[in-house]
Nucleic acid binder design. Structure first.
Length: 425
DNA sequence: TCTGGGGTCCTAGGACCC
DNA sequence: TCTGGGGTCCTAGGACCC
């Protein structure tokens, strides 16, 4: 029995989320900014048509956006995360084999018994998601994940196809692949795309026909796998259960540069707190902590410095106070006076399930810290983040980043629930 | 003035060991 | 002039993804 992959991808996801609660923005140009209002990470079709590029620094196009009455939002991850869960829940309710691939994408594995009308099925699925959640999606079908990805791209381009396209047993498969630039293939990024193009491999069809040894040598095993997938040979596993996390990062650029060690540590302490909370939610403990700091790499005139320092945690821990004291030592080693720091971050590595944590011969703090951390998390969950936190993380946090155009947390915070009024005519 | 954040995988090369 | 060779482990850096 043949196997089919469907890729369901939410259209311009962050923009669609914002529009759900601002319906007046339908058919108007809208963009969403990254953290710190740094650059553009989502664009409506109208914004794309204006020529606004993905990843464009906001300050460079701010005037242009204003001139064209483009609506600008800071990113609102509480909202996007919640709507993502709703879309995924619909898929999981309707299908047994779902792989949540990212916040706005999922693969569905369908055992196809031949003759099933995939496109009709896709149209129905798409309509269900639109009705139940309100987010528009595109759906691509293919015999491998890579081809499903390409089919999805075609679904988006083919306006007459109503957002659904299948490459399964497509009679003109090669002709279609010949029109896909090699850099648009999933797994071929900017660097490899440029290299391939320079070597005469310009399209997905060219890549499909590439020489195995050459591909292996120049693109490593991953590139060869991509070529295999284009040939219809499925090489990428379908992962219904998300693989165990290997690291947890928390980092942010600052709203302004930071010079002093005390203030820098406030930021580091804040990120330690966030990462540790995330880790405890996942019921993990870390065996290694890494702290990094960096100056603004775009500011060519200022002296540059970036460095990281890591420390082993023995026994592995999820205790915020323990992590804070270790992070302080790391920063003491890392810190150099005289630099304008732009960003700092914390990475938790060597993660283990907390249940498997071995007792430490010389006694750790886990006995005391466990209940304390549980109580802390409970309070902060109930009363809001940072209700109780370590003083090390600071109170004013004047270095925090900008988010000047953020929409309310419509679906995850009682205060921000949209209010609907009925009126009699 | 202003350029995101959070991940994964692969490989080459050095360190180390016998 | 002329360095042993082969295995394993670890890490840094590069590439990719959304």
């Amino acid at each position: 029995m043949a196997q089919v992959f469907a890729l369901i991808d939410c259209n311009n996801f962050y923009v669609s989320c914002e529009r759900l609660f601002a319906p007046q923005l339908k058919a108007r140009p809208v963009v969403v900014l990254s953290n710190n209002d740094g650059c553009i990470i989502a664009r409506s079709e109208e914004a794309k048509a204006l020529g606004i590029a993905m990843g464009e620094p906001y300050f460079k196009v701010a005037a242009f956006l204003e001139k064209h009455a483009v609506h600008v939002f800071s990113s609102n991850y509480a909202l996007y995360g919640d709507l993502s869960q709703r879309v995924m829940a619909v898929l999981q309710q309707l299908e047994p084999f779902v792989e949540i691939y990212s916040i706005d994408e999922a693969f569905v594995s369908l055992p196809v018994a031949g003759g099933g009308d995939l496109v009709a099925y896709g149209l129905k699925l798409r309509e269900t998601i639109r009705q139940w959640v309100g987010i528009p999606v595109s759906i691509g079908f293919g015999p491998t994940k890579t081809l499903a990805k390409i089919a999805n791209r075609m679904a988006k381009q083919d306006k007459a196809g109503n957002g659904v396209f299948s490459l399964l047993d497509h009679p003109r498969l090669d002709a279609l692949l010949a029109e896909v630039p090699v850099g648009a293939v999933w797994g071929i990024g900017r660097r490899h795309g440029a290299k391939l193009t320079a070597c005469g491999i310009r399209s997905a069809f060219d890549l499909k026909g590439g020489d195995d040894d050459w591909l292996r040598k120049h693109l490593t095993i991953t590139g060869l796998r991509t070529a295999m997938e284009l040939r219809g040979l499925s090489c990428l596993p379908f992962e219904q259960l998300p693989p165990a996390k290997k690291s947890i990062t928390s980092s942010r650029s600052f709203g302004r540069t930071v010079q002093g060690k005390a203030e820098l540590f406030e930021a580091v302490a804040t990120y330690v707190t966030m990462a540790a909370e995330k880790m405890r939610r996942a019921k993990l403990v870390a065996g290694c902590l890494q702290v990094f700091v960096t100056t603004n790499r775009f500011n060519k005139d200022a002296p540059q410095y970036s460095n990281s320092e890591s420390v082993r945690l023995e026994p592995p821990t999820a205790s915020t106070p323990e992590l804070l004291s270790r992070a302080r030592v790391c920063l003491d080693h890392l810190y150099r006076p005289g630099y304008a720091y732009q960003k700092a971050g914390v990475v938790l590595l060597d993660l283990l399930p907390e249940a498997r944590q071995q007792g430490h011969l010389f006694g750790g703090d886990s006995g005391k810290a466990g209940p304390l951390m549980a109580a802390l998390d409970k309070i902060n969950n109930r009363w809001g983040r940072e209700t109780v936190q370590s003083a090390a993380a600071g109170f004013t946090k004047s270095w925090k980043n900008r988010q000047e155009r953020k929409s309310p947390a419509y679906t995850t915070c009682w205060h921000d629930l949209p209010v609907v009024r009925a009126s009699r005519r």
